[in-house]
Simulated assay, not measured.
Amino acid sequence: MTRLLLPLEHHHDSADLGEDALLVRLKKLPRRVQQVFLLNRLDQLSFAAIAQRLDIGAPTVERHMGQVLQAALPVRSASSTAAAQWYVRLQSPDITASERIDFRRWLDAAPEHLHAFHATELRWRNLLAPARQLGDGHWYRQAWAGVSLGGCSVALGLGLAAALAIGFWS
């Protein structure tokens, strides 16, 4: 994602979660959501490139990225939730000119909107270190990495089913 509003130098908000807490929250997200996030954050792939690589729709990529930002919210409020939604939407290749105008109107409507959007940008920056830990080993680059059944990979499940079927028919 590109820098939108914050200058390079910024102050940390005391309400933000620490890196360890962010990592815990990220690990609780579904595996496919983690994969989409890591492809974007670590490999810097666009939403369109992620959608193509994983053979999913761009709206699905957008929804997954929204889930990541919502999980990273230290405190949920209407403004922070809307700011996270706008932040993700602004990165989408499907955003229209009228949506950009709507965003600007939302941003200018109240001072807390601007503050919430800046906090969202800062939150995004603070997700880099936990993302590096979460993506250790580059597991997320595998096409099948986001598919799991209760933490057990589909490949392992299919292998077990095949072994049982062979044993049954022998």
Rank of each mutant, 00 (worst) to 15 (best):
R105E: 11
A119M: 06
R105Y: 11
L127R: 03
D108A: 15
R104T: 14
H113W: 00
E112P: 05
N126C: 12
L134Q: 01
A116V: 02
R105D: 10
L114D: 04
I101T: 15
G135T: 00
L114K: 04
L114P: 03
E121R: 04
L122G: 11
L107F: 15
F117Q: 01
L134R: 01
E121Q: 06
Q133N: 14
H115K: 12
I101C: 05
A109K: 08
P130F: 07
P130Q: 08
F117E: 00
F117D: 02
I101V: 15
R104Y: 13
E121N: 05
F103W: 05
R132V: 12
L122F: 10
H113V: 04
G135Q: 02
P130I: 07
E121M: 10
Q133M: 14
L128I: 04
A129Q: 13
W124K: 02
R100A: 02
D136C: 10
L127H: 02
L128S: 01
A110H: 15
L107M: 14
R105I: 11
R125T: 08
D108L: 15
A110V: 03
R105W: 07
N126S: 12
L134F: 10
P111T: 09
L107P: 09
D102W: 00
A119L: 11
E121L: 11
P111V: 01
T120K: 04
R104W: 10
R132N: 08
F117W: 06
A110E: 10
A110M: 02
I101H: 13
T120L: 04
R123P: 00
R104I: 06
A110P: 05
A116P: 01
A110G: 07
N126E: 13
R123F: 06
H115N: 08
R104L: 14
E112Q: 13
N126A: 12
R105M: 08
L128H: 05
R125F: 13
L107C: 00
P111F: 05
D108E: 15
P111N: 05
F117N: 06
D136W: 08
R100L: 07
T120H: 07
G135N: 08
L122K: 11
W106V: 06
N126H: 14
A116W: 00
R105K: 08
L122M: 11
L128C: 01
W124R: 01
P130Y: 05
L134H: 03
R125E: 10
A131L: 09
A110L: 03
R104E: 15
T120C: 13
A129K: 08
A116K: 05
D136Q: 15
A131E: 02
D108T: 10
A131V: 08
Q133G: 09
T120N: 09
F117I: 01
N126P: 03
A119E: 09
L114E: 12
A129S: 10
R125Y: 11
L127F: 00
D108Q: 14
R125H: 12
L128T: 07
A131C: 10
H118Y: 03
H118C: 14
D136I: 03
H113K: 04
D108H: 13
P111Y: 03
D108M: 13
